[in-house]
């Protein structure tokens, strides 16, 4: 067997929620499974002071390992390593088959001819360009099952955007990622949904509690939006 047996696909991943953040992301494809690893290019827990001594907070949850999506066609469940506020969770969910809708449009990305497909998944509509010229079942994040590599992803509200950057062979040892998936409290997707829902309140609480007294503060409400919005 060749040393460089696995495929590695690099994407430019943008999460444009309240802040536009670019993540480094890598999709590893082996014969049996895929790993999608994404993390901040810069760490982003920031506290900045404005001219009136008003504090402004931004938080992105990440650690040195980052978020890992594990998917195997051979298993009934898929696993996600998720970095929470205080602890790391491994989310276990049933492997679902995405009902992709195929569209007649084609376009070229680099030298690859790509086809368009779309789906509705976890409360968002995704538009995807994939190329059958790279026969890979897997895609970034949880967007699997197309007859070719996913080259571009965009959800309708532009929260998630991924752009194919590079494909190469790799001999990178994936064991550390697999063992990272085995450390952390295993929770169900429903529990995960609940944690995500409470996250905003939790953060606002912490924020309020960390304000120095001299600061005049009021919070008009919490804007919260998650990549995954529906969990049924």
């Amino acid at each position: 067997m060749s040393q460089e047996q696995n495929l590695k696909i690099d994407y430019d991943l943008y999460i444009t929620g309240f802040s536009l953040s670019k993540k480094s992301s890598e999709l590893f494809v082996t014969d049996d499974f895929s790993l999608f690893i994404w993390n901040d290019t810069i760490s982003k827990v920031e506290e900045t002071e404005t001219e009136e001594n008003l504090l402004k907070f931004t938080i992105e949850l990440s650690d040195s390992i980052g978020t890992i999506n594990y998917y195997s066609k051979k298993e009934d469940s898929i696993f996600t390593r998720s970095v929470g506020l205080d602890e790391v969770h491994v989310v276990k969910e049933k492997r679902t088959v995405i009902a992709w809708e195929l569209h007649p449009e084609t376009k070229t990305i680099g030298k690859f001819t790509c086809n368009k497909a779309s789906c509705t998944f976890r409360g968002r509509t995704y538009e995807v360009w994939y190329t059958p010229e790279i026969p890979v079942f897997y895609g970034p994040w949880k967007l699997h099952g197309l007859p070719g590599l996913v080259m571009e992803v965009k959800d309708k509200e532009d929260m998630l955007q991924a752009y194919f950057k590079k494909i190469s062979r790799t001999d990178k040892d994936l064991v550390p990622y697999l063992s990272a998936l085995q450390t952390g409290k295993i929770i169900s997707i429903e529990e995960y949904a609940e944690i995500q829902r409470k996250l905003g309140d939790e953060l606002v609480k912490k924020m309020k509690l960390s304000f120095p007294r001299e600061l005049n503060m009021s919070i008009d409400g919490i804007k919260q939006d998650q990549l995954e919005r529906e969990f049924n």
């Binding site: 536009l20 900045t48 404005t50 008003l54 931004t58 008009d220």
Partner: peptide, 18 residues
């Protein structure tokens, strides 16, 4: 606008930076 955040007091930040 994506990437821009306006806080309650009107302070604006872009990608977390004021």
């Amino acid at each position: 606008l994506p990437g821009i955040e306006v806080s309650n007091d009107g302070s604006i930040s872009v990608q977390g930076k004021p």
